[in-house]
Nucleic acid binder design. Structure first.
Length: 432
RNA sequence: GGUGAGGUGGCCGAGAGGCUGAAGGCGCUCCCCUGCUAAGGGAGUAUAGGGUUUGUAGCUCUAUCGAGGGUUCGAAUCCCUCCCUCACCGCCA
C-alpha cells in the first residue's frame, strides 16, 4: 500500500506516475470526491463523539451529586441517532477509499527501466557458458523418465489432478538434496535464521504481503470442517509467513537487519495460465522453494536487494548452472515490488533461459499494510521497515535445470559436486 | 473433543457501568543529590487517525483494555459470537 498522503496531497502526480510506469489508471476525480466526503464525515463524526463524551461526563457528575438528570438526558436524545448515521456513512466512504488504495500497485524505483512487458526487461549479466551437447539434449521429463521413471505425472494426476507430480527414487532424493543444499548454504554461510512456518495462513497475513484482496484467485483456499472456523489459504510462497512474522510489531533498531530462510512447499492455483507450460515440472500447483526474506532499515533496502540477489546467484554458481540476471521493467514487476531482479537458468531443451528466482525490494509497501515497524535508538516515533524477498531458489525448477544440464549421452545423470554429499557420495544416477 | 481459568500499556498487575488512556510496581529516558560502588529525590515514558499548519513542531479532537457485534446518555467493566493462551481429562503423528 502506498502512503495515503500521496492520495491526499499529490493525487495528480501519483496518478501520472502510476499510469506511466504501471499502466494503472487511477480515477482521480472519484478519489478526490471520496476524500472530500471522508474529511467532512470524519470531522462531523468526531465532533459528535466529542459532544457525546462531554455530555455523558456531565450526566455522570450531576448524578453523583444527586441532581435531576432527566433534562440532561433529554438534551442528548437525538445525538445518538445523528452519531450513528454519521458513523455508518463515514465507514462506507472509508471502505470505498480503502478498497481503491489497497488495489494500487507499488511505485517503481527510479532505476527501473520503463517498459510494458518482459520484452522490455534489461539483461544485467550472464554467468556460465551453456554446455554444448554432442547429442540432442532431452527435456527434463524425458531425462527423468529414463532414470527409473523418477517423475510420474500420471500418478500425480491420479492422486490430485493436473499440474501435480510424484517424484520417486533418485529423483526424489535429488529434489531433497537440492533443498537441503540451498537451505544449508543460506543458513550457514549467508547467516539467515532458519524458520519453519505454517503452510496455511489467515487472511490478515495474506493481506499483509499483498495477496489479498486483489489476487485471491491465485491461491488455494481452505475452509475448515465447521463453518465457524476462520478461512485459511495455502501459502503461494514462504514470503507470506516469513514477512508477516513482523506484522503489528515494532523492532528495536539493534535487532536489524532481520533475515530469514525457509524451505516450504508453495501452492498456486495458476488460474489464468491454462495451456502455459503444461508439460513437465515448470508450472505446478505445488512446488518447493527455499525463500529468503529480509526486514531492514529504509536506507539499507537497495543495497540489501543486491546482497539478496547475490545469495540466490550463489546457489546457481555452486550448482554450476548457467544463468542470466535480468532487471524487470516497470510493467513486468509484481504488484508490491519497487525493484525486481529475476534469475533465469539455462534450459538446453528449450534453448533459452527460464526464471528460477525472483528477488524483490518491496520498499515500505508491505510494511505499511502490515504495520511492521522499527524504532531508531533515541527516537520516539516508529518508522516503517522495508521488506525484501527472493527465491533462493525454486527447488522444482532447480531440479529441472540439473536434469537438463547434467544429462549424459547414455541417459544417465551426473550429480553436481555440491550435491554429492547429500546423495550418499554418489557421482551419477544411472539410467535403467 | 470435554471441563475450568484467563487475555488490560515495553513487562508485571489493579480496576468490575461515569471523575480511568487506564492505580501501583518493574524497566527505560532526563534532571537533582551523593567523593567510588550501592542507594535516594523529582519529572517523563503507548499507538493510529483527523482538524489546524509551510511543517514528521505545537495545539486540539477521535479511536484503541484479544476481535467483532449488542445494551446504555455513557462500557476495560454488562450481554452475544468468535479467536487465542494456560491447566486437567480424552484422542492422536
Amino acid at each position: 500500500m502506498l502512503d495515503a498522503k500521496l492520495f491526499r496531497n499529490e493525487v495528480a502526480e501519483t496518478a501520472a506516475r502510476l499510469a506511466e510506469t504501471r499502466d494503472f489508471q487511477l480515477d482521480v476525480a472519484q478519489l478526490e470526491q471520496l476524500e472530500q466526503r471522508r474529511k467532512e464525515l470524519q470531522v462531523r463524526t468526531e465532533s459528535l463523539q466529542a459532544e457525546r463524551n462531554s455530555r455523558s461526563k456531565a450526566i455522570g457528575k450531576a448524578k453523583a451529586q444527586g441532581e435531576d438528570i432527566q433534562p440532561l438526558l433529554a438534551a442528548v436524545d437525538d445525538l445518538g441517532n445523528q452519531l450513528e448515521q454519521a458513523k455508518v456513512e463515514l465507514h462506507e466512504v472509508q471502505e470505498e477509499l480503502h478498497a481503491i488504495i489497497s488495489g494500487v500497485p507499488n511505485l517503481p524505483d527510479a532505476s527501473v527501466p520503463l517498459g510494458k512487458d518482459e520484452d522490455d526487461n534489461q539483461e544485467i549479466s550472464r554467468w556460465g557458458e551453456p554446455h554444448q551437447f554432442d547429442f540432442t539434449p532431452a527435456d527434463h521429463v524425458d531425462v527423468a523418465h529414463k532414470l527409473a521413471n523418477g517423475m510420474d505425472f500420471e500418478k500425480g494426476a491420479k492422486l490430485a489432478g493436473a499440474r501435480f507430480v510424484v517424484l520417486q527414487g533418485a529423483i526424489a532424493q535429488l529434489h531433497r538434496a537440492l533443498a537441503q543444499f540451498m537451505l544449508n548454504l543460506h543458513v550457514n554461510e549467508h547467516h539467515y535464521t532458519e524458520a519453519y512456518v505454517p503452510y496455511l495462513v489467515n487472511h490478515d497475513t495474506l493481506y499483509g504481503t499483498g495477496q489479498l484482496p486483489k489476487f485471491g484467485e491465485d491461491l488455494f483456499h481452505v475452509q475448515g470442517a465447521t463453518e465457524k472456523q476462520v478461512p485459511l489459504s495455502l501459502i503461494p510462497t514462504a514470503e507470506v509467513p516469513l514477512t508477516n512474522l513482523w506484522r503489528d510489531e515494532i523492532a528495536d533498531e539493534a535487532q536489524l537487519p532481520l533475515q530469514y530462510a525457509a524451505h516450504t512447499p508453495c501452492f498456486r492455483s495458476e488460474a489464468g495460465s491454462h495451456g502455459r507450460d503444461t508439460r513437465g515440472l515448470i508450472r505446478q500447483h505445488q512446488f518447493d522453494k527455499v525463500e529468503l526474506v529480509w526486514l531492514v532499515k529504509p536506507e539499507q533496502s537497495m543495497e540489501t536487494l543486491e546482497t539478496l540477489t547475490q545469495h540466490a546467484e550463489r546457489v546457481l554458481q555452486l550448482l554450476e548452472l548457467p544463468y542470466r540476471k535480468v532487471l524487470l521493467c516497470t510493467g513486468d514487476m509484481g504488484f508490491g515490488a519497487c525493484k525486481t531482479y529475476d534469475l533465469e537458468v539455462w534450459l538446453p531443451s528449450q534453448d533459452t533461459y527460464r526464471e528460477i528466482s525472483s528477488c524483490s525490494n518491496m520498499w515500505d509497501f508491505q510494511a505499511r499494510r502490515m504495520q511492521a515497524r522499527f524504532r531508531r535508538k533515541g527516537e520516539k516515533k516508529p518508522e516503517l521497515l522495508h521488506t525484501l524477498n527472493g527465491s533462493g531458489v525454486a527447488v522444482g525448477r532447480a531440479l529441472v535445470a540439473v536434469l537438463e544440464n547434467y544429462q549424459q549421452a547414455d541417459g544417465s545423470l551426473k550429480i553436481p559436486t555440491v550435491l554429492q554429499p547429500y546423495m550418499g557420495g554418489k557421482t551419477e544416477i544411472k539410467c535403467i
